[in-house]
Write a protein that binds this DNA or RNA. Sequence first.
DNA 1: TATTGTTATACTCTATAACTATA
DNA 2: TATAGTTATAGAGTATAACAATA
Lengths: 150, 150
Amino acid sequence: MSRAKNNIGELGPLVGYHLRRAFGAFAADFAVAMEGTGMRQVLVGILTVVSGSPGINQGAVGRVLGIKRANMVSLINELVDAGLIARVVDPGDRRAFSLNITDAGRAMLADCLARIAAHEQRMLAGFSEAERAMLLELLGRIERRDPAAA
Amino acid sequence: MSRAKNNIGELGPLVGYHLRRAFGAFAADFAVAMEGTGMRQVLVGILTVVSGSPGINQGAVGRVLGIKRANMVSLINELVDAGLIARVVDPGDRRAFSLNITDAGRAMLADCLARIAAHEQRMLAGFSEAERAMLLELLGRIERRDPAAA
DNA sequence: TATTGTTATACTCTATAACTATA
DNA sequence: TATAGTTATAGAGTATAACAATA
């Protein structure tokens, strides 16, 4: 492992750069963790939100997770086609679909969350509980910001 | 701003989830910060590395930044076409191209780094210097990990 | 045989605009 | 007029496989 120059220069002190690299490392390991399930990061997110808010509609799920309405369509289709969520017309608002997790969805979600727990442990090996909590807190402060949309 | 339920359930304690959201927020504001320059995150990264390691070749730049060889080709083409970097056959290894930043590239990089500094300040408003350093340190530990490639 | 750069390709994520049907 | 969902489309990031030229 003769680590070469690896001269990132002015990128070194940039949080944005390291956020990108850390996100990439997490995403790569996440994909490995999900192998065989057919699930991806976004799908697990949607399944979790639907599980926690039975009867929620697509738009609301998208708003919670930061996914555009247009992009929700095929994602929900994937989950419905896989039998993981059920979609019925909302009786109270016939424009909307009411989403609910199925038994198969619950089983899949449980499997995914177990895999994700192991994945997080791998990625955060060596982190103290205080460090993990601090990282969550700092990331939370960033994500609750949106200067671009101001 | 009647914040709705926003029930993310089991996603709440996951570092990976918040990393994704924080990365998204950073990327969106980065794009706004670069408006009018024609530059993107990856291009600034490449320009910075070439600037700091004159004569470096494509493969090495990719290795430093975590970009696959195949994807480097069009990125380098963009920068060459824009007149920001010069590409000549490496005299010592005629398979490789030697990359150098041009004067125009130096000017562009200076402009971009100034915009990025302002962008980072926006995104990290309210962070103490110690918090910023801590975040950099924790992210650095994550990115220097690659369980998937083990 | 390994490496540099290349081409071709494919999948995912993200974004916008325009449409429909309901409200 | 506004909202829920849809369709079509486009740009960007990332990944693999196969190839030519050179080492």
